[in-house]
């Protein structure tokens, strides 16, 4: 039995997944802060300046590589772990499990895949447009993110789907936040309540914060 650092056990995989997840959790806060600039009513000046800074600053460019790495790592390990989990019970129960568990904790792969689908659409709408891989909407430049956002959020169908997906992201984050600490072994009677509270508060703030924006553009803009 060799003790190689690259010999990935179930716990090692989960640790990498948790670390990548925590990195993504931090990223979401930065993303939300910039998006909330849309509500300032300054014609998108600060939002555009922030978007420009994020897409041109060399330090941010380096972080962008880590961000994509984090997403890919999180998604691939999540799928690998789930496939192993499904294989671990080839014959299921006749009676569905009635043990007391947090409802969404059992469906992380599904909420995760829904969030991934949303992420793909989001990339098509913004990131790939910036790179020139996808054509921007008529009359909008490929760096005019404010105009693209207004166009998208003025579409009520798009905004409604966006809101539903963000609620699902909220449930994903609510379990993920607490689970990441448990996976990293950070469980302590003194701090468990605080971690639980922060997890719930974070998921409500992030999901709620993102949801306010399409509501603003649909009804108050």
């Amino acid at each position: 039995m060799n003790n190689k650092i690259l010999e990935f056990s179930s716990i090692s995989k989960k640790v990498f997944m948790a670390l990548a997840g925590l990195f993504l959790i931090v990223f979401l806060l930065v993303h939300l802060t910039i998006n909330l600039f849309l509500l300032l009513g300054d014609g998108g000046k600060l939002f555009t300046a922030s978007a420009h800074f994020m897409s041109t600053n060399p330090v941010i460019k380096i972080f962008e590589v880590f961000l994509f790495g984090g997403f890919i790592l999180h998604i691939i390990i999540g799928i690998l772990l789930t496939l192993k989990n499904w294989a671990s019970r080839p014959v299921g129960y006749n009676q569905s499990n009635k043990s007391k568990t947090a409802f969404f904790s059992k469906y992380m792969i599904w909420t995760g895949l829904i969030v991934f689908t949303f992420l793909a659409i989001h990339m098509m709408n913004f990131y790939f447009v910036k790179l020139g891989l996808v054509q921007p909407p008529d009359g909008v430049g490929k760096h005019e993110f404010y105009q693209m956002t207004i166009l998208l959020f003025s579409n009520k169908v798009y905004s409604s789907i966006y809101i539903v997906l963000l609620i699902i992201l909220g449930f994903h984050l609510n379990h993920a936040f607490k689970a990441a600490f448990q996976t990293l072994g950070l469980n302590h009677n003194k701090y468990n309540c605080t971690i639980g509270f922060l997890g719930t508060a974070y998921s409500i703030i992030v999901a709620g914060g993102f949801i306010i924006i399409p509501i603003y553009f649909m009804f108050f803009f």
Binding site: N97, K178, Q182
Partner: peptide
């Protein structure tokens, strides 16, 4: 399988072993 922190184990353990042991294992 892998632990996904659903804690059904703790809920059904006849000896009420705490999930904090899983954190210790990690």
């Amino acid at each position: 399988g892998n632990c996904s922190n659903t804690y059904g184990c703790e809920a059904e353990c006849p000896k009420e072993i705490s999930k904090s042991n899983i954190a210790r294992l990690n």
